[in-house]
Amino acid sequence: MSSWNAQLARLFLEQRKALEAFVARRTGNRQVAADLTQEAFLRLARLPGGERIDNLRAFLFTVAGNLVRDHQRQAMRREQVEVELPEHEPACDQPDGLARLATEQEERLLHEAIMALPDVRRRIFLLYHVDGLAYREIAEREGVTARSVEYHLRQALVDCRAFLRGRLAGGPNP
């Protein structure tokens, strides 16, 4: 076994459980944590053996952190699409008056849900989803950490979903 493979095997035995726990804390899902941990080790194993990495453990945890962020971005995009897209598309390209009215009402509800968010959360949500800024850029603008940005984005989706459910269930109209 080459020294690179031996290093990887030793790192796997020593760090797998710690890395999986690290990922599980960030995702809240043990199965996702197991999958992302495996992917982190695979990405490390795919590196050419000749590359010099001073601290393999730190590098591995950085790779895992990046995978978690990618996973969470994808999850938020899926949730955003679920919230934004109507369940039933119109049968034709030219929606009739009723379909147009329904679309306008959906857009109004989404706008109200976003406007009901607390100020900081709404700004972070709009900077990410409308302006397309990265977590780090938003964190610098808002004077918070990137982790706080991640929390606010996740919570904004939860808040918007709860707002929409309340309205669709016959909650109060402003």
Rank of each mutant, 00 (worst) to 15 (best):
Y135K: 04
E112F: 00
L36G: 08
L85F: 07
N5E: 13
E51L: 15
Q74I: 06
E14T: 10
L85Y: 04
A18M: 06
I138V: 14
F22L: 09
S3W: 04
V158F: 02
V158T: 11
L85E: 12
M115D: 04
D93C: 08
S148G: 00
E106N: 08
D96I: 03
R123S: 09
R77N: 06
E150L: 05
L110D: 02
A162M: 03
C92S: 13
R154H: 07
F163V: 01
G143A: 06
I124L: 10
F12L: 08
T145K: 07
A102V: 03
P172H: 02
N66S: 13
R69Y: 04
A18G: 11
D54T: 12
A99D: 12
G50V: 13
V130L: 15
G132M: 09
P90C: 06
D35R: 12
R167W: 02
P48W: 03
L109A: 07
R154K: 11
R16E: 13
R147T: 13
R57E: 15
V130N: 12
R16F: 13
R121P: 00
F12R: 09
L42S: 11
A45K: 05
M1V: 05
W4E: 03
L19P: 09
H71T: 04
L127D: 14
R10Q: 13
R73P: 01
A33T: 07
S3R: 09
L153Y: 02
R46G: 09
H152Q: 12
L60S: 06
N5G: 10
A24I: 05
L168P: 00
T62V: 12
R25S: 12
R73A: 12
Q80D: 12
A18S: 15
E84L: 15
A24M: 13
R73T: 12
A24D: 12
Q31N: 14
R147L: 06
D96T: 03
E150T: 04
F61G: 08
G65Y: 04
E106M: 09
E20P: 02
P118T: 01
L127W: 12
T145M: 01
E150P: 00
V83S: 01
V32H: 05
V130R: 15
V120H: 04
Y151P: 00
E104V: 07
R77I: 13
R57A: 14
Q31A: 15
N55E: 14
L19A: 07
H88Y: 02
I138G: 06
Q72T: 11
F41K: 09
I53M: 07
Q74M: 10
Q155H: 04
